[in-house]
Design a protein around this nucleic acid. Structure first.
Ligand code: ZN
Ligand code: ZN
Lengths: 256, 256
DNA sequence: TGAGTCTAGACACAA
DNA sequence: TTGTGTCTAGACTCA
């Protein structure tokens, strides 16, 4: 039956680098799923290197892209790079709009190749949603915040008219995580610095000024709580609480 | 959100003919699933007729056959004809080995056509597993087990050359509930004898109309309890207990 | 478009 | 082989 909660050592090792608390059971599933795929494709070693060294100079670590881009783990669907970036780098990561791939990442999610890179160190976190964002019309005065640049690193243009998705053209590059600190990468994070550099200048767009696209209304404490995802099957408690005891499950066609 | 437990009238009506207790929530899902398919194919009317009149003279009611023959409802997989025969006729039905299609059923499960008939009145229940059974080598005495025929309906050849499986002589098919009791063929001769009998035929069966074999005084208390099936997802209690309250679900990536 | 739900098919494992 | 449970991509649904 292997109801045993067996976790291979590699998975344990990788999990020990997980950032943030909670969601342990699910994270384990996510890592197991990734490890399984990488074993087949031979990318497992590179993953371990990337995670342990936190080095952006590692190679792309890829998994097949599904039709809609999402990956399902346990009963939850999400974009794979978001899932693994959240797991190993930014637990509070909200969506793919907050991620930007490094230039040298050849399988970046946005490139829409048939494999997607999930190397967490091939992505940087940007503060504001790159494209859509919620544009708030601006009356007059209100010197409000919004548009201003925040990034510690130089240039910043609020909202990028940006161009095509993948191309990486003029898109806001608000500097990596560092909004209000984010120790994670703020350091001399290898890799990251440069590619932002490149992102930085091009902007050409306009549109910026009249609208303040408020960068993520911070205060994302929202991240705790959630609607259980997907299906509601038989007796199973939450997760974290590792007890898969089937307690009071009532009927269902017996048969053992 | 439609968290509403909305159940269309047809489904309600069909459910009112369900035999046996419990498992209500799941049964509803099963019927909903069937109704949905039949609406598309136009077989819904015939289903209602069959279920309400309990008439074997109704036409085949079919759904597409999956590759491995199983149908999944909620988180449980099973053979479709078994599922619906259990639901509407024999709640204690254990497996497809206990079912035999009527001769005029042109989409009987065993015919392996690309549609399967799930008309519960196109199947009859037989007592012993038709073929496999668990064969137990038998030393000597063993009150023989010889062939006698059981089926109330005519033809029966006691263990003709057929089945080979057990390799001849002293083998006995021990098996499935009803060992004793079993009004079906009530002969004084319990289990052993008859199932051998039934081993004989199979396929292109005859025995057809022996409608006599209906409700079986169930002695199988086995049918209560069961391992929760399929996956173990987030916060969800059992089922039947309609409360999808996500109570203490702990972590998981928030996001509402 | 985004996000959740459902299940056939693919696996995995066991008898 | 057959049988049964698990997991998830794709399909679907709804906002
Ligand atoms: Zn990469
Ligand atoms: Zn039929």
């Amino acid at each position: 039956m292997s109801m045993l909660p067996f976790t291979p050592p590699v998975v344990k090792r990788l999990l020990s680098f997980k950032k943030g608390e909670g969601e342990d059971k699910w994270s384990e599933k996510a890592v197991k799923s990734l490890v399984k795929k990488l074993k087949k494709s031979g990318g497992l070693e590179e993953l371990e290197t990337a995670i342990t060294t936190e080095d952006a100079a590692t190679r792309c670590i890829t998994i097949p892209r599904s039709l809609d881009g999402r990956l399902q783990v346990s009963h939850k669907k999400g974009l794979p790079h978001v899932i693994y970036c959240r797991l190993w780098r930014w637990p509070e990561l909200q969506s793919h709009h907050e991620l930007r791939a490094l230039d040298h990442c050849t399988y970046a999610f946005n490139l829409k190749k048939e494999e997607v890179c999930v190397n967490p160190y091939h992505y940087t976190k940007i503060e504001a949603p790159a494209l859509p964002a919620i544009l708030v019309p601006r009356g007059s005065s209100s010197s409000s915040s919004g548009g201003s640049c925040n990034s510690s690193g130089g240039s910043c243009n609020s909202s990028g008219g940006s161009s095509s998705v993948g191309g990486g053209g003029g898109v806001v590059g608000v500097r990596v995580g560092s909004n209000n600190n984010n120790n994670n990468n703020n350091n001399s994070d290898p890799g990251s610095a440069e590619d932002l550099g490149s992102l930085a200048d091009l902007n050409t767009d306009s549109l910026s000024d009249s609208t303040s696209l408020t960068s993520v209304p911070p205060t994302l404490e929202s991240s705790q709580s959630f609607p259980p995802t997907e299906s509601p099957p038989p007796g199973y408690m939450s997760e974290d609480g590792d007890s898969p005891d089937l307690q009071d499950i009532t009927d269902y066609p017996g048969q053992s």
